[in-house]
Simulated scan of single mutants.
Amino acid sequence: MTRLATCACGSIRVTCASEPTKVSVCHCLDCQKRTGSSFGVAAFFDRDTVRIEGPTKSFSRQSDSGFPVTFHFCPDCGSTVFWKPQRKPGAVAVAVGSFADPDFPAPTQTVYSERRHSWLDMCD
């Protein structure tokens, strides 16, 4: 199955020619700030099955594991569409919301649950 993720304005197109290896909900404070929401949801794909088109700007930050993560976002609309964790050089993480697909596979794990907002009840 091929899946297409885009930014809000459509300038960035990420075509994933496989199923995700993992779908993860992250409750860390950095993901909360990055998304402007209470959590982030990422689908991880093997890098060699992902094609990225369009201009991006990037922002890198250290992760708790000590490895940097580089986030790529649209220079026009600001949507963060994908990121590359240096800890997993063979992977690309794609923001699940960028697929705009309510039938996208459900998360299989949560991380940083201790920072989860108390009113959330998912993936327990």
Rank of each mutant, 00 (worst) to 15 (best):
C74G: 07
G66N: 03
V94Q: 03
S79M: 01
S38T: 14
V81L: 02
K84Y: 09
F67A: 14
G90N: 12
S38C: 13
F59C: 10
K84T: 13
T110P: 04
T80P: 06
V41R: 10
F59V: 10
T49F: 08
P105T: 02
D64E: 15
K84N: 08
F44M: 07
A100K: 15
T70P: 04
F99H: 00
F67V: 05
I52F: 00
F71W: 11
R61Q: 13
W83I: 07
Q109N: 15
Y112M: 06
D76N: 14
K84I: 07
G54D: 00
R115I: 13
D103V: 07
S38I: 07
T56R: 03
S63A: 14
I52M: 05
S63T: 11
H117Q: 05
Y112W: 13
S118P: 06
T70Y: 10
D101Y: 08
A95G: 11
V50L: 10
K84E: 11
R87W: 10
K88Y: 14
Q62R: 14
R115M: 12
T70M: 13
S60K: 07
G66L: 06
S60W: 13
Q62Y: 14
A100G: 11
G90T: 11
P68S: 08
E53K: 09
A43P: 12
D46V: 08
Y112L: 01
A106S: 15
G40Y: 01
D101R: 04
Q62S: 15
Q86I: 09
R87I: 04
V69P: 04
D76M: 10
G40P: 06
T70D: 00
T70H: 10
P102D: 07
T110E: 04
F45L: 02
D103R: 11
P102S: 03
S98I: 03
K88E: 14
P75M: 04
P68I: 10
F39E: 04
C74N: 00
R116L: 07
V92A: 01
Q109R: 10
K57L: 14
P75I: 00
P89Q: 07
H117Y: 09
P68R: 03
